[in-house]
Nucleic acid binder design. Structure first.
Length: 203
DNA sequence: CAGTGGATCGTCT
DNA sequence: GACGATCCACTGG
């Protein structure tokens, strides 16, 4: 296992980073409980020029400020009052790019994960969808701004994903973004049961 | 499998 | 005061 260091996140090409994160391991250690999952679905949000992004048009607020800072940290926000959505902030200061982690296939700490999602038995929906990713790994809005080298970290475990195994599509739930809603900025591991979204999007 | 509606609250206007 | 980078339960085919 090789930890992804800052140089991975500081690059400018957020689409490339979103694609490369497919197959990587997202690991958290909270209260001595270690849980991890393989990333099987991501979405890129391309800063100020992307109408789907919270940072569109240089929109700086207390909430979005962290995206304008240096990459390699977490941006977690509350959606619909219920769901905590975890993003990886990328690029250098001033370029508010981010990658939303939309689905994981759980790897380590299955019992802890089952406790967190209040399920008794394993099933393929665990880790499916961004709200469920954060829930399974214990990530919440309080982790915004935290470095991705500590309690939350990303790893390359050596798994090699063929380019043809990664599909792309439009992003989910961004209808408000006008023509930017049509951009193919969502990436997923083909055939993986933990991937979210309609089946027609996942071919 | 697809479509619908309710839950729930921080954030921004 | 409106709404959202969602999820689940439930309906019908």
């Amino acid at each position: 296992m090789l930890k992804l260091d800052d140089s991975f996140f500081l690059r400018e090409d957020v689409l490339k980073i979103a694609r490369e994160l497919i197959g990587k391991i997202l690991l958290t250690t909270f209260d001595g409980k270690r849980t991890s999952g393989r990333i099987v679905e991501t979405e890129a949000y391309q800063g100020v020029i992307d109408r789907a992004s919270h940072a569109y048009n240089n929109r700086r607020t207390a909430r979005t400020e962290v995206m304008f800072g240096t990459g390699g940290v977490a941006y977690v926000y509350l959606c619909y009052g219920i769901h905590h959505l975890f993003n990886v902030v990328t690029s250098t200061s001033g370029q508010p790019h981010a990658v939303l982690i939309r689905a994981i296939e759980p790897v380590e700490g299955i019992r802890t994960i089952l406790d967190r999602v209040r399920k008794k038995h394993w099933n393929a929906s665990i880790g499916r969808g961004p709200g469920n990713v954060a829930k399974a790994l214990g990530i919440h809005t309080g982790h915004t701004g935290h470095s991705l080298q500590d309690q939350i970290s990303l790893w390359d475990d050596g798994a090699r994903i063929r380019k043809s195994a990664i599909g792309s599509s439009v992003r989910i739930g961004v209808d408000y973004a006008g023509e930017d809603a049509l951009l193919p900025y969502r990436f997923y591991l083909r055939g993986n049961p933990h991937v979210s979204g309609r089946t027609t999007l996942n071919r």
